[in-house]
Nucleic acid binder design. Structure first.
Lengths: 228, 228
DNA sequence: TATCCCTATATTGTCGACAATTATGGTAAA
DNA sequence: TTTACCATAATTGTCGACAATATAGGGATA
């Protein structure tokens, strides 16, 4: 027998991943209708496969569908993004708390190493940190919570949603300058096994991101008004 | 046109609700396999309908399915229930915070009224408060948050899961005696528009429930050990 | 007896067709 | 011109059949 047989990947899985990618990256724009027949020809699979993929997208909150009418990609709004950040604040705050309790010493050491490499890239003025680095940091803490419910809600649903919002609203990654210091504080708290502080700092970190985002968005709005 | 055409209810919807009911109430026991052909004969619908219903159940975290193998009702464990309560603490804490900000004065008045009727039933020594009353209280605050993401995670997924756990583990409703006082404090905080306190009290309330539950479960475990 | 392999069976994945419902467009009446 | 209605077209919901995969059981070999 194979060492650890991973579960097989079906045609539906591939279609789901493709569709999600296209939605998150804006190839299929927000608010647009998802025609089953059209998609089945475009992606070269039967309607049954498309239907199942759409169902999964719906459970990720990426699309909304009405009976006998069809599915649409969720339409975005500033309020929607703010709602997401509130949920994220609550869940990732709890994740940081649990991570401070449940991460192994080795995992914490790795987290510190990661922070070190980020420090290097920041010092060298590279922009890499902006996207992937921030994600990596948050992922590790979420996984470090060891709470499977928490992990699945954040990783399967919320993160993809936020990424879609970011792309569609034309926002780049999170704030670059100040974020590193906040990350450092959080890792410090986790290293000290200070669960309460870790939660508090993580919540503040996400709240800052939310406020910064809101500021950018209102700026964009004003720019649009001016253009008229 | 009709005044407010609600979305139509399809055969899949009905089957999904039936299946969920049977799983949550233990008619289909936890850990058991969900055979598509068997269910399609039992519920008198095609396999396609069953498949879609199972997919929805999976997105509620009520069943787990592997490709080419099939779906099983999630198997329960004390750890799983504790994980759920941690997520609930984070999300309902945030819900209480947001409710203190976003509920209308009328909604808060209604909440106080509800608390009053609960006080009556408690004073009269009725057990009604145990189940439905507690749920009603929590639902109103969750809805009061006005955060659609938060609402959908809690109402569509977590609450059904917790109910399943309760039934399968043979637990009755939440603690009866002390809970009323905690509810009263929370409503007070919301009435005062004190968001931070509302969150803190709600989190403590859920933490107490969790601890009480854990105690009961370890007691049950000991009783089982004794029986051997 | 225990282990491995192969075959037969059962279950899930995918497909195309038909039924039910909704959206569309044109016609007639006000 | 606007509105209401009806017939047609298009889309989604449901079904049964076939293909692909996993499971179970028996027989051969060590």
């Amino acid at each position: 027998m194979l060492p650890e047989s991973e579960h097989a990947i079906t045609s539906t899985d591939k279609t789901f991943l493709l569709l999600r990618k296209d939605i998150v990256e804006g190839v299929i724009s927000s608010g647009s209708k998802l025609s089953e027949t059209e998609l089945s020809t475009n992606y070269s699979v039967s309607r049954a496969v498309i239907r199942e993929a759409i169902n999964r997208l719906e459970s990720c909150h990426l699309v909304e569908s009405k009976a006998n009418v069809g599915a649409r990609v969720v339409s975005i709004s500033t309020e929607g993004l703010m709602e997401l950040y509130q949920v994220r604040e609550a869940l990732e705050g709890m994740a940081a708390r649990l991570a401070a309790i449940n991460m192994t010493d080795d995992e914490i050491a790795d987290l510190n190493t990661l922070l070190g490499t980020h420090f290097q890239t920041v010092k060298e003025g590279q922009t890499y940190y902006q996207e992937a680095g921030d994600l990596d940091f948050h992922y590790r803490i979420i996984l470090g919570s060891k709470n499977s419910q928490l992990i699945s809600i954040l990783m399967d649903s919320i993160y993809h949603l936020i990424r879609m919002y970011r792309v569609q609203l034309g926002m780049s990654g999170p704030r670059v300058t100040t974020a590193f210091g906040e990350h450092k504080q959080i890792v410090q708290a986790i290293s000290n096994r200070d669960a309460e502080l870790a939660e508090m700092l993580m919540r503040r970190h996400i709240l800052y991101s939310k406020n910064s985002l809101q500021l950018k968005l209102s700026g964009k709005l004003q720019a649009k008004m001016k253009a008229l």
